[in-house]
């Protein structure tokens, strides 16, 4: 493989990995506070992407404005899902909440088919994102650089919230011991809602950038990224934000590079994530940065 080609693949892998990482963070954060795999997370991503579609085409807003509105809208949707589908089941066995999560996922997808129709819709790509930089024979789409940079900014903002603010302190405390955290005066329900808001905002950001790359939206677009990001969260060690980022990037690189080096395997593209999942579960079930889990999901 030529060096130019390698760079091309490298940036593609970094972009894809960033998108997985942003989604994986939501899984890992929700798991941290509720010990729940939020299967509706991928669908939040889809709704976020649709919001941009409507913002730009139905309301005629600029892409940036639509994107910000979409992130906020998806964030609210995440809070709503938690309020309606998970909070009433707080005292119920964990499996009930898990089933509820699967139900929410199907519900959002089906509702999207009814409301948005199943037909894929085009996505507006702002010019400044689809123009190219060129170094010699390497062509880099600005979008390919924009995604990792945006991801880095969002992850930095998230780490600031987690490690420098009161709600962040409460989130980290809840993940270890809810009862003691409540004793300290933390209104746990509010912190859980906030966690969903942040996680959903990141998923929507990822979904919006995902839609820019393809460039279309459809009601089932969240399923595969959602599943792979879940794998990324497990690979990194579920419950760890840093692990989710690392897991996402690893997954992005494995997926792109394995096809780059072995083009004949491109039909198995989606299989790599799950092969990694099996390997991690066999050899290091807690993931790269995960701690020992006493219970399974």
């Amino acid at each position: 493989m030529s060096l130019e080609m390698f760079f091309q693949h490298f940036f593609n892998a970094l972009t894809l990995g960033s998108l997985y990482a942003l989604i994986a963070i939501g899984y890992t954060m929700v798991y941290g506070v509720l010990r729940l795999i939020n299967f509706a997370h991928g669908d939040i991503l889809m709704v976020g992407a649709y919001f941009v579609f409507f913002g730009t085409f139905a309301f005629g807003w600029p892409w940036g404005v639509s994107a910000i509105a979409a992130v906020c809208g998806a964030s609210l949707l995440g809070v709503l899902v938690e309020r309606v589908a998970y909070r009433p089941l707080r005292e119920a066995p964990r499996i009930s909440a898990l089933i509820s999560a699967i139900a929410v996922s199907f519900f959002i997808e089906s509702l999207a088919v009814v409301v948005f129709t199943g037909q894929p819709r085009p996505v507006l790509q702002p010019d400044w994102l689809i123009s190219e930089w060129q170094w010699g024979r390497v062509h880099i789409l600005k979008l390919t650089a924009f995604v990792p940079v945006m991801t880095a900014v969002l992850v930095a903002a998230l780490l600031y919230i987690l490690y420098r603010t009161k709600p962040g302190l409460a989130m980290r405390a809840i993940s270890k011991d809810i009862e003691t955290t409540r004793l300290m005066g933390v209104r746990v329900d509010n912190i859980i809602a906030f966690t969903f808001a942040v996680g959903s905002a990141l998923a929507a950001a990822s979904g919006i950038m995902w839609a820019l790359r393809y460039p279309q939206v459809h009601p089932y677009m969240g399923i595969m990224p959602g599943l792979k990001a879940f794998v990324a969260a497990v690979v990194g060690g579920i419950g760890s934000v840093q692990g989710a980022v690392i897991g996402g990037v690893i997954l992005g690189f494995v997926e792109i590079m394995s096809i780059a080096f072995f083009p004949e395997l491109s039909g198995y593209r989606d299989a790599f994530a799950f092969i990694i999942l099996v390997l991690v579960l066999v050899f290091k079930p807690t993931g790269l940065l995960g701690e020992n889990l006493k219970e399974k999901i």
Binding site: K166, L169, A170, R172, A173, K176, D177, E179, T180, T181, L183, M184, G185, V186
Partner: peptide, 21 residues
């Protein structure tokens, strides 16, 4: 509480700040 219930992954300072939440 019984058993101290210190948050093991938070620093001493953060544990105290949590008490003042």
């Amino acid at each position: 509480p019984e058993g101290r219930r210190i948050l093991p992954h938070l620093t001493v300072r953060e544990n105290l700040l949590l008490g003042a939440y």
